[in-house]
Nucleic acid binder design. Structure first.
Length: 257
DNA sequence: ATGTCAAAATCCTTTTGA
């Protein structure tokens, strides 16, 4: 079972890129972030024609998450994180697919930091951690994936000193990620590649992709019940080099059946 | 402070978030 995550940076604007990638790599499940489309503007037909059934939670202009599956329709469990009824941002969707509970998330960027946006990021992180703990306690096979907007350690940033004060790399952010993982989750990429330079995002600025000035901010966290099934993981980094592409590359894992 | 990109409002140029 191959599961991918991809921050598409606009599901309609990047639709040709998304479809090309789906056709090329054929993941069983694809978690998407930054749809930047309201409910009615999700390209359901094109996705269906590509062989996928989908659930999504959209929002005008920003955010938005979706789960696509070609191995049976995703059964939606929830489309918000618990803990704040007033939060209207579409950043979480969760579904059961083929016996695996999949949480697809788009954690707030949080810049500029400090400030209200950073406070929102940290509080969203707390809500995610609380929910993640409940998922772990269920004992189910769980995959938490998406754009976490966190570089967990220094090897996940091309120039750590430049990012020290950024919301994606501040000590509070890294600590929140570390504490989340410490609940019992496994960072899939780092389990297979503990020390390699692996990036999932390259800024549009200053030829970042060409210089490989990247960040690793899209992650897969695996629960103990599914951990041992991990057999491969990687980044489709060439997709970042396509025309009209997202600033993220797709990331994927493969699980034994 | 800068750089790029896409989409929406302020509406064919500027503002915004990333």
């Amino acid at each position: 079972m191959k599961i991918a995550t991809y921050n598409v940076n606009g599901v309609n604007g990047r639709l040709p890129v998304l479809l090309r990638w789906l056709h090329e790599t054929v993941p069983d499940v694809a978690c998407l972030q930054e749809l930047k489309a309201p409910k009615g503007k999700f390209p359901e037909e094109a996705i269906k024609n590509a062989g996928y059934e989908a659930i999504w939670h959209g929002q005008k202009s920003w955010n938005g998450v979706a789960i696509l599956s070609k191995i049976g329709a995703p059964v939606e469990m929830r489309n918000t994180l618990p803990g704040n009824e007033d939060d209207v941002q579409s950043r979480y969707i969760e579904a059961m697919v083929n016996g695996v509970l999949i949480g697809c998330l788009y954690l707030p960027n949080g810049n500029p930091a400090p400030g209200p946006k950073f406070d929102y990021k940290i509080s969203w992180f707390e809500r995610l951690s609380k929910h993640a703990e409940a998922l772990l306690k269920s004992g189910n096979p769980v995959v938490l994936t998406g754009d976490f907007n966190v570089m967990p350690t220094e090897i996940d940033v091309y120039k750590p000193e430049r990012w020290a004060d950024d919301a994606l790399f501040r000590p509070e952010t890294r600590l929140a990620f570390k504490n989340l993982v410490a609940q019992g989750w496994t960072d899939a990429i780092r389990k297979l590649y503990p020390a390699e330079t692996i990036y999932t995002f390259w800024d549009y600025f200053r030829n970042a992709y060409g210089r490989n000035a990247g960040l690793r901010i899209d992650h897969f966290l695996l629960s103990p019940a599914i951990n041992k099934r991990l057999i491969a993981a990687g980044v489709d980094r060439h997709v970042r080099g396509w025309e009209k592409t997202s600033d993220h590359g797709p990331v994927w894992i493969e699980l034994a059946d």
